[in-house]
Design a protein around this nucleic acid. Structure first.
Lengths: 215, 215, 215, 215
DNA sequence: TGATAATCGAGACGGTACGTCCGGTCTTGAC
DNA sequence: GTCAAGACCGGACGTACCGTCTCGATTATCA
């Protein structure tokens, strides 16, 4: 539902009044072909030309729907988005962060998904509009819901008021993108747990002091 | 010195006796032009053709020296590398990390430098050989010297033996690349200090517990 | 009419319904530019790149129409072909040969035309497909209609049945190409007349004997 | 002997005074490689670069000896020239023409030889200096000795004084080049005999008239 | 014997052209 | 107004040769 709304902002459905209506099959064929090309040849082989050929669709039909390669990638991202979104109203920060990180990492086991994300990063270096979409549709929504989650935790005293929330977010998301792009180490559940453990040391530093006192 | 050696591994100096020697001016003109093209038009405008034109050099002369755009970018990286490298034998981990992060962040004030790095990431999604160079010349050396620095600190008891060093490294480097690529927030000395503060919470968690006890 | 058909065999007109139709102006501009480049710089300067530049047309637009330089040359030949073709049903062999040779020689006064022909010969040494086109479109049609003309003359008794027609054709066409390619002597109406006079000595040797007898 | 002199005019042996003398093996290796490249890949693959590579010789060593591809081809022609030259002082024109044509045709059974000649024609369309050499070294010498042969025959009354000698030469040489370049028909002894038969009809037309009278 | 000089290979150099691919736009006839 | 098809210009790709040049090393003659 929400995804639909977001997609529609990219390729808005105009009032279907006049003329021949767009073919939904064409739409799907394009996205399927895009996924297939990414899967087979990676970002390097991901050209509009190739996608059109594989979808048995004219280039025009692609450009009519999406203004650029980046927009297609964003669409693929939107469609692939699982319901992993951070639940801002979760009762336990610790539990919600764990749930979210494990879900994210689970999703990233899929090579196709990793390719979509890394292609988005690459394309956004080329094309400013892709960079903007990447920020607006991918990066910032996550940061914002994460921020709200953290704020709620602060408000109910789960974490201290002096925690540097922005940097905490960088420490949560940054390492994942880092491993995704440079592939120097695995991104798996173990990594998620260990990353979370370190972040928790920063998030709950006071709590630890308290526990220590009690001993 | 060290950079020279590393550069030579990319464009190795063959036995200098044979044939007309390469012209150092040509070499420099190409790299200067590459920097200029990146500066003026970013990664999107960075084509061998443009670089050759701007350097008033034939394409052949470029391909003779570097096999790909990625290799040129790596060379630019190598040349631009300041002496910011992590000093593995530093006496104070805390001080050395701070010095390194501030130097890194200082370097990243330069738009040209940021463009080189983000272009490298983009190009490495296209081209596996660039990805390999990026790993071998940029990412891993930093991680390895960082790892050694952390190990020395462990050995002399500055930090605990149970610290998850790999993840600490991800938390140090990841957020910087993350901000570099998505440009959602500034990368400045303040960021460096705040990032370090959070990481220190994880690195020195025991120390804090001790201090708390004393009170 | 016949030329049209022949040209179409080189760049066949596919079912005209589909897609944006080819631009006739582009077509003409390319051929005009090709002629101009040949005129200005000869075969040596005749490159697709130059033609494209002069025609203000992309290289793609040329390659879409003709697969090779040779094919363009053949097209220029076809377009330039005057209605000099041998009339196979002519009543007088002697008169028809004279008419044809004089027309041919007249056409060869044009440097542009000579360049097209000699370029075709040169290119056909490079490229087997050009050689095939040169044979099929230029050399053999002339030989075949010449052969038919000679046969008709034999049938109606204008020349003897034992005349070696193939060699007669070599003697008619060979010397012209020979002078065209080596430029050791002029190709003009005088040459045509003198060549014809010699060939007639072979063609009508019996007649001569007859005339001589009568004296 | 004569050929040697002619070759030397192309790559003259300067007074062997100072400096390291040229290596004859290098000279031979280049020409052998040139022949080999022509044999294997035809005129299309005949590049200085390829010849140098195959001869295991530097390009400089080739350019030091011959100014152009055409000059090498001329050299190959010179070396391959058999002692087929027209003997100007032959007693019988008819016999000498027959001997010469049969020798020529015999030589042309060799594909390598045909390739050298047709390459020369192609190259001479590119390069004016090759055209000049082709005229001076190949075409005109044959024509001139042929012309002298014919004149001697005229002087001693073997043929009539009114014969058009220039055109006779065109009719002897033209058809051979014609078949060589367009490969529409074989060049063999049979062709030589038949061509000669036709030319003889022109050369000895009076003689025939005479014979006819006698009957 | 040592200076001089042309050779040798290797290969860098600036150019030009090749034929292909892709981007993004435009044009057509059919639906 | 959408659809498939495909032409259009422009730009870049990486490669092949061109003919020139620069090098260190070699091999001769001449002083």
């Amino acid at each position: 539902m929400k995804q639909k709304v977001m997609r529609d902002e990219i390729s808005p459905v105009e009032a279907p009044g006049r003329g021949r209506p767009r073919n939904q099959q064409t739409h799907d064929a394009i996205l399927d072909a895009a996924r297939e090309v990414l899967r087979l040849h990676g970002y390097a082989g991901f050209s509009i030309e190739q996608v059109a050929a594989l979808a048995a669709v004219s280039k025009t039909s692609i450009y009519r729907r999406w203004p650029s390669k980046g927009a297609i990638l964003i669409e693929l991202y939107m469609e692939g988005l699982p319901d992993e979104a951070i639940s801002e109203s979760a009762k336990s920060l610790k539990a919600e962060l764990r749930r979210y990180l494990l879900a994210t990492v689970e999703r990233l086991q899929d090579l196709e998904w990793r390719t979509i994300l890394s292609s988005l990063v690459a394309e956004s270096q080329y094309d400013e509009s892709t960079a903007a979409m990447l920020r607006d549709k991918v990066v910032m929504p996550r940061r914002e819901s994460g921020l709200r989650l953290l704020r709620h935790a602060q408000e109910r005293g789960e974490i201290e008021a002096d925690i540097d929330l922005e940097v905490i977010l960088d420490m949560l998301f940054g390492p994942i993108w880092y491993r995704l792009l440079f592939v120097h180490a695995r991104i798996d559940a173990d990594f998620a747990e260990r990353l979370l453990a370190q972040v928790n040391l920063a998030l709950f530093y006071k709590e630890r002091v308290g526990k220590a006192k009690k001993r």
